[in-house]
Design a protein around this nucleic acid. Structure first.
Lengths: 214, 214
DNA sequence: TACGTTTCTTAATCTACATTAAGTTTTTCC
DNA sequence: GGAAAAACTTAATGTAGATTAAGAAACGTA
């Protein structure tokens, strides 16, 4: 009987922890959504069951290369990277995501094909998980979210166009200088070798740039 | 009186030409939309007034660097490029669009800021024009199109992620070889120096690669 | 058809960053 | 707290593609 009581308390505590995580994440997401689309109380009620909250440990994978990207992820807390490993075994980061960003391999998610990318947590984090099938159901129930996701995707699209412009136009050094000026806290937050990877050059070269700057 | 009659005939002929262009473009677009979203007859009736058809001459600009991107464009016929000019005066192509593609500077369009890009026609072409404000009205009238545009944008997103992967991973030569194998007709269709620009290297280098391949 | 413009080709020289190879410092984990 | 792993730094050497400078070929226009 004591064992059962203890298990019940543990279960209730787990439930409490999950609920707290879930509320925190949903709050972030609703704040984000309402920046683009206004929702009624009813719509909010309708949409909340479609999301699952997840806590991730540092280095935890959400999916790995070769797996189908299982969901679209909204970052409530933490930092994540989408990366691939090239034929020399070197990791190349294609995208980071921090609070209030969505991240996924959108080609894999859309076409349900194995991803060449892996998605990994860089620190303890909290996410909302929206699987493809679940998203389809959700959008059937709350069609206003089609608008939200369209706006998000179009913004990401514009950002990608600008990113490709920078890759073409700026030297490695210029990219570093601009990025560090635009996102100084982010630069402190991640390992320098990952920053180098994202900016498209080697950690050795980044060391050289940093030495030059001192 | 004779002059009036001639003017009326000219005006009717212009209207006929426009109508023919418009029908052709709308047909392309409706075919495209129905690949993703099914529309009722009523919805089709509702949406058609929101699009303007446009014919472009070779080299014609839809917008130039420094202007706000005025619209989202659906390509019914022809080929277009989105490019910027770097500080050395060299043109860098960020994107092409051919039949059934949408193209715009999505950052400029979304935020209504001056674009660093220009959008130019590479051959005589035909487009449907959807200005931002008009799109908002349209989406208010036929909300199903939110879904269509979300899907399109998400696919473009996935494609951009893959594009960035290729830029990081493959050498210039490898990019050329893969692109030429994947899109042989497109390679014939555009000037080689534009292909080089899009793939991220100089026309001189492309000449070298082509010589090597013979 | 002739001329000017655009596109493509060729080759030598240059350069931004990669690669190789360590050593040093910081972080992690038991 | 100590050892191992990870991250950062340094420097010499190498390389993929850029730059420079033309010349040749193709295209467009009057």
């Amino acid at each position: 009987m004591v064992k059962l009581a203890i298990q019940f308390i543990i279960l209730s505590f787990d439930l409490f922890l999950y609920y707290r995580l879930y509320l925190s994440c949903m709050y972030s997401l609703l704040q984000h959504i309402q920046r683009f689309v206004s929702l009624t109380e009813e719509e909010i009620q309708l949409l909340t069951p479609y999301f699952t909250a997840k806590q991730t440990e540092k280095k935890e994978y959400l999916f790995k290369e070769g797996q189908i990207c299982p969901a679209n992820y909204f970052v409530s807390k933490g930092c994540y990277r989408l990366y691939f490993v090239n034929e020399k075994g070197v990791e190349n980061i294609v995208q980071f995501a921090i609070e209030n960003w969505w991240i996924a391999d959108y080609m894999s998610l859309e076409k349900q094909i194995p991803s060449p990318f892996s998605l990994q947590s860089l620190e303890t984090g909290e996410l909302l998980v929206l699987e493809k099938q679940v998203q389809e159901e959700l959008l059937g129930k709350v069609s206003k979210l089609e608008r939200y996701f369209r706006i998000i995707a179009q913004r990401a699209n514009g950002a990608a166009q600008v990113r490709i412009k920078y890759i073409s136009e700026l030297s490695g050094e210029e990219r570093y200088v601009q990025f560090a000026a635009s996102f100084p806290e982010f630069v402190q937050r991640i390992p320098q070798y990952m920053l180098a990877s994202y900016l498209g050059f080697t950690p050795e070269f980044l060391s050289k740039l940093r030495a030059k700057k001192r």
